[in-house]
């Protein structure tokens, strides 16, 4: 109908204009609400805080400046401090390593049980998923502090807490990897009469292992940070040393610990990125 077309197009155009105007209004409203929320939020948080923002902003760099000044005063003995705190750093790294290992093994088991393509019982799978959600939701600190009370001050309660959280966090990622795995190898193995464990071992694990390891390495980095934090509540390691020194403003010690911590985190970041690159590289070659 050639006559009706212009009117039709005009209607579409007005509708288009109307909608784009609406969108602009909505976006402006959204940004406005965000700004009001932020301003109001900052103000109310500022009031709830012990010191105010305007007072604090001038003092923001006082503490860093102070500890750096104290470190320079310490002179060459500062390097001795690095050596002194190194064993504590090692303790924290050991904690993170073992917690990641336990968490990794636990996560592999629980993720295989929580993958809907490997387990047919839907109820069981969803129960396992809820269990993982629960383990993931538990902040390490809450569990660690209760365990520290029950087991006395040592690294072990913190280790258990970190491992517990790791099982949940890695388990979720692993089960997603499992569910994305190609099922044809499993079917092939099933045809040869392989049992469930054999199907997993030869059909799934070779496909997902690079992913597992790369997630595990990422988690190791997170767990080093978590283990440091737990040192603050009495789990030992470098975190415990840091709290004590910060409280007394032993500047040189604080900077020595910071340097150790930050260089460990950066080193781990680089190592894990390098290994992950290699793992996923070989993984994709196997897939291709």
């Amino acid at each position: 109908m050639p006559v009706a077309t212009p009117a039709h197009l005009a209607r579409i155009e007005t509708e288009l204009h109307r909608q784009s105007r609406l969108r602009t209004i909505y976006s402006a409203l959204g940004i406005g609400v965000l700004i009001v929320f932020m301003v109001f939020g900052f103000n109310s948080a500022d009031e709830a805080n012990a010191g105010s923002f305007s007072d604090g902003i001038t003092r923001l760099f006082d503490f860093p400046a102070e500890i750096i000044r104290l470190s320079f005063e310490a002179g060459w003995s500062w390097f001795g401090l690095l050596w002194h705190y190194f064993p504590f750093l090692l303790e924290t790294i050991h904690m993170a390593m073992l917690a990641t290992f336990i968490g990794f093994v636990g996560a592999v088991v629980i993720s295989l049980l929580a993958s809907s393509n490997l387990i047919t019982n839907k109820l069981f799978v969803s129960t396992m998923r809820r269990l993982m959600d629960f383990m993931r939701a538990f902040p390490e600190l809450v569990l660690a502090m209760v365990l520290l009370f029950l087991m006395g001050k040592s690294a072990v309660p913190a280790l258990i807490a970190v491992a517990f959280h790791t099982i949940g966090a890695l388990g979720k990622l692993f089960s997603e990897a499992n569910e994305n795995a190609d099922m044809r190898p499993v079917e092939g193995l099933k045809a040869t009469g392989a049992g469930w464990l054999q199907q997993i071992r030869f059909g799934i694990i070779p496909q997902v292992l690079p992913n597992y390891l790369s997630y595990g390495l990422l988690r190791l980095e997170i767990n080093v940070r978590a283990s440091t934090i737990l040192g603050f509540v009495g789990a030992g390691g470098i975190g415990e040393q840091l709290t004590a020194n910060i409280q007394w403003t032993y500047g040189a010690d604080v900077t020595a610990i910071f340097v150790l911590l930050i260089s460990t985190i950066i080193a781990l970041d680089y190592i894990s990125r390098w290994v992950r690159g290699r793992l996923i590289g070989t993984g994709s070659m196997v897939g291709a």
Partner: peptide, 27 residues
């Protein structure tokens, strides 16, 4: 790199030193 390399916890210690205890330092 610096913002993310210095842990959230260390940032919170620095901000608590400057602004005192409270949610503002945390956020």
């Amino acid at each position: 790199d610096a913002l993310r390399g210095i842990d959230m916890l260390i940032w919170s210690l620095i901000f608590i030193r400057a602004f005192g205890m409270g949610p503002f330092s945390g956020l």
